[in-house]
Simulated scan of single mutants.
Amino acid sequence: MRRQALVPFVTYPEAVTDAVTINAVAMAAKLDADLHALAVNVDIPPVSNALSRFLLNTPELIRQAEIKSGKRGMEMLTAVAKQAKQFDMDVTTKTLVAAPALLGDVAAKQARYFDFALVGWEANNATSQMTAEAVIFGSGRPTILLPELSTIGALDHIAIAWDGSRVAARAVADSRLLLERATRISVLTVVDEKPLDEGEMGERLAEGLRKRGLPAEAVAIRTADCPIGVTLQDHAIESGAALLVMGGYGHSRIRDFVLGGATEGILNDLRLPVLLSH
């Protein structure tokens, strides 16, 4: 059975660069997945305020923003199709429009129909972070974040961020197909960041994976006064891991969405591809 992966491109207010298309196609190839590219362009409701119409020329500003968004969406879809030819990969493309406040929600809902969502991440690009948050917490599907400056290599060494939680267990289950193909699995447990429910939980997971025939080892690490998201990524990179698997923590509080410390650290400073499940 061929796996199916979606890469959503939200094009407003700031679309990602073509580096995301390169990484998305490369990751889909590593997953042996068919790739589906989605452009989510903006459809801004008309403004009825007379002052906005006549003094600020808001209708024209809206028209220009929508044209720019649509043009960039087409460019992204074309770039994906062109890049995919190098891998002899089939790509399907689709375009949807949504109001500014619903762009991320549309991407998340579309991702529910696929095995993986591939989301590009770029430093100082608020749209890419918004898209990542929406898909991670709204799709119900494993989401692989792809940093713009990272080259997608062989997924032979995978690191797992493990704290024994429900979301961490969900991430391990969601990454099973990738873990079964790895030649090395490192189970990373941060032992000085928060109270853990039981001792040696990293070794317990590693042992369970080994009983399933997977080459897993437990690694206890310390934060060393660094944010936990940085600690996990740095250890994964230093050990040569090509992908970090972890649970995505987040919950609603009044009108704000509150991220867990590790998840926030990942979304603020992504250093390698990370598979997040919520």
Rank of each mutant, 00 (worst) to 15 (best):
A123P: 12
W121T: 06
A123N: 14
V119N: 06
P147Y: 06
L118R: 05
A117E: 02
S128L: 07
W121S: 08
A134K: 11
N125K: 10
L118D: 05
M130K: 13
S150F: 08
P147M: 01
A117Y: 00
E122S: 13
A126W: 05
Q129L: 12
T131R: 02
M130W: 06
P142Q: 03
M130R: 14
F116G: 03
E148W: 04
A126M: 10
E148I: 06
G140C: 06
E148Y: 09
Q129Y: 01
V135F: 00
L149A: 13
V119Q: 03
A132I: 04
F116A: 00
N124Y: 13
V119A: 07
N125F: 04
F137N: 05
V135D: 01
P147S: 07
T143K: 00
N124G: 03
Q129P: 00
R141Q: 14
N124D: 15
A123E: 15
V119Y: 02
F116L: 02
L145I: 01
E122G: 11
V119T: 08
G120T: 10
A126L: 11
E148A: 15
F116H: 06
L149D: 14
P142V: 08
N125M: 08
M130G: 15
I144M: 02
T131F: 07
N125W: 05
F137D: 05
A132Y: 04
P142T: 08
L145K: 01
T127G: 10
N125Q: 09
A132T: 06
T143G: 01
V119S: 04
L118Q: 06
E122F: 12
P142L: 02
A126Q: 14
S128D: 09
I136T: 09
G138Q: 09
T127L: 11
A126Y: 08
E133N: 12
I136P: 08
G140W: 09
F116I: 05
A132V: 02
S139D: 02
E122N: 14
L118N: 09
S139L: 00
E148M: 07
S139Q: 09
G138W: 01
G120R: 13
I136G: 05
A123S: 15
Q129V: 15
G140N: 06
E148T: 10
W121D: 04
T127V: 12
L149E: 12
S128W: 07
T143M: 01
F116M: 03
S128Y: 04
L149P: 00
S150Q: 09
G140H: 07
A134E: 10
R141D: 07
A123I: 12
L146R: 05
E148V: 12
